[in-house]
């Protein structure tokens, strides 16, 4: 025990398998309850983790550009973390989707900022909230019975085109629309000089990708998004031992790079292929689920309970494939 403590083993319990025998206890699942903290990943780029979805902060002389704002419950804490990075105002909040854990802090964080473009019709100054048009539609017209965020949390600048670009903090910031992937409002946000791409939930290192079919997501679109992301992400080739490489901030989980994206893309592609093979054989959804098509990936990426289970993921893939066969 003394030796374990000396090596810092005890502070890495998520990494230590106890109980072995091929099972992993629920409390050891990575990234379920991560500590709240800010991690610097570039000289002027930070990631705030543990506030719902990851919040990326790009800091410079023009002010602060945030990508996503975390959950409403963590908004005050997130604001304090952002203020600790710079005394410059928050200029933009860019939402990668309409998910509550990505937009929940919009009102609080935008209210503490000031847009680069003066809004002469507004009563007070706020940061601009930028998102795809569908995010505004989702937030302003929630499904019946679902809570509605206050209008202060809604996007103030939306677009419907493939790209929206701004040049802020001496960096080219590209918002790249990725239609019908995790949802119908997904954006990749590429900070070109910093060489950081914020992926939203297109890349989610907690579990199998969440494909929100009720809000326009699709497995095919998710795979297209991951392959597009691979095109944009530069690996450390040929100087593989040097740290230089494109960094990826996923919607949830640690900062990643090319090799982890490849693993995630390969996982989804292989599982999709296996289920497609079963669909081709005429297997029903229940037969597919019973055949455990995610074997090999289920322990690491699957969940047996919670908001996104392995069964839900398999069902999303199955539905996507059977729809494709019918169309």
């Amino acid at each position: 025990m003394a030796f374990a403590a000396a090596l810092g083993v005890l502070d890495t319990l998520p990494y230590v398998a106890s109980g072995f025998k091929g099972t992993l206890l629920a409390q050891q699942r990575p990234y379920e309850n991560v500590p709240f903290e800010t991690i610097q990943i570039r000289p002027n780029v930070y990631v705030i983790l543990g506030a719902g979805a990851n919040i990326t902060a790009h800091v410079g002389e023009d002010g602060i550009v945030l990508v996503d704002s975390g959950s409403a419950a963590m908004a005050d804490k997130a604001l304090a973390a952002v203020k600790a990075l710079s005394n410059r105002p928050i200029r933009y909040i860019i939402n990668t989707s309409a998910d509550a854990d990505h937009v929940g802090g919009n009102a609080t964080l935008a209210g503490a900022g000031r847009s680069l473009i003066e809004d002469t019709f507004a009563d007070d100054e706020r940061a601009a909230i930028v998102a795809h048009e569908n995010v505004l539609l989702r937030l302003s017209t929630p499904p019946s019975g679902a809570p509605q965020l206050p209008s202060e949390a809604w996007p103030t600048e939306t677009f419907t085109s493939r790209y929206r670009s701004v040049y802020v903090n001496d960096d080219a910031v590209q918002m790249i629309r990725q239609p019908g992937a995790h949802s119908d409002g997904d954006l990749l946000v590429h900070f070109r000089r910093a060489d950081v791409i914020v992926t939203g939930d297109i890349l989610d290192l907690r579990h199998f990708p969440v494909v929100d079919t009720a809000r326009g997501g699709s497995v095919r679109g998710e795979l297209e998004a991951l392959n597009r992301l691979l095109d944009l992400t530069v690996p450390p080739v040929p100087q593989v031992l040097k740290p230089g490489r494109t960094l990826l901030v996923p919607g949830h989980g640690r900062v990643a790079d090319y090799s982890e994206l490849v693993e995630y893309r390969d996982m989804l592609t292989i599982v999709r292929d296996i289920i497609a093979d079963m669909v081709k054989k005429g297997m029903t959804l229940e037969q597919v689920k019973a055949a455990n098509p995610t074997a090999g990936y289920r322990a690491r990426w699957g969940r047996e309970s919670g908001p996104w289970t392995t069964d839900m993921f398999v069902e999303a893939v199955y539905d996507d494939l059977t729809k494709a066969r019918k169309s």
């Binding site: 810092g8 502070d11 890495t12 998520p14 990494y15 990575p30 990234y31 991560v34 500590p35 903290e37 991690i39 990943i41 983790l49 543990g50 593989v240 740290p243 960094l247 640690r254 900062v255 990643a256 790079d257 090799s259 982890e260």
Partner: peptide, 12 residues
């Protein structure tokens, strides 16, 4: 030095 947190980037 302390071990990085669970949030830290994994490296090769």
């Amino acid at each position: 030095r302390p071990r990085p947190s669970v949030n830290a980037q994994h490296v090769d």
